[in-house]
């Protein structure tokens, strides 16, 4: 990479583009007027459980729930 310019502030903070765009999207959603705002916020619910594997065994699953764009 030929980059010498400073990396964007959000990447310096350890975010990926996805997290960054999610935060932006959430900000936009919060700007909606009321009936639409609640609807948009309830639509984007996060729920899944993720477990890392080591030595052929699943470790304790981490539940990611209802925290859009942490």
């Amino acid at each position: 990479m030929a980059s010498t310019a400073a990396v964007p502030f959000w990447r310096a903070a350890g975010m990926t583009y996805i997290t960054y765009s999610n935060i932006c999207a959430n900000l936009v959603r919060n700007c909606l007027k009321e009936p639409h705002r609640a609807e948009a916020l309830t639509r984007e619910k996060v729920h899944f459980s993720l477990s890392k594997w080591a030595d052929g065994k699943a470790q304790k699953p981490v539940l990611r729930s209802d925290a859009p764009a942490v």
Binding site: A25, E44, K45, V46, L50, A58
Partner: peptide, 22 residues
């Protein structure tokens, strides 16, 4: 390396999948 379950509990949406992709 990773396994993910219970993705279908809520109706699928982009926010959820993007957190997963992240």
């Amino acid at each position: 390396v990773l396994s993910v379950t219970e993705l279908n509990k809520n109706p699928l949406n982009y926010a959820q999948v993007s957190v997963l992709a992240d």
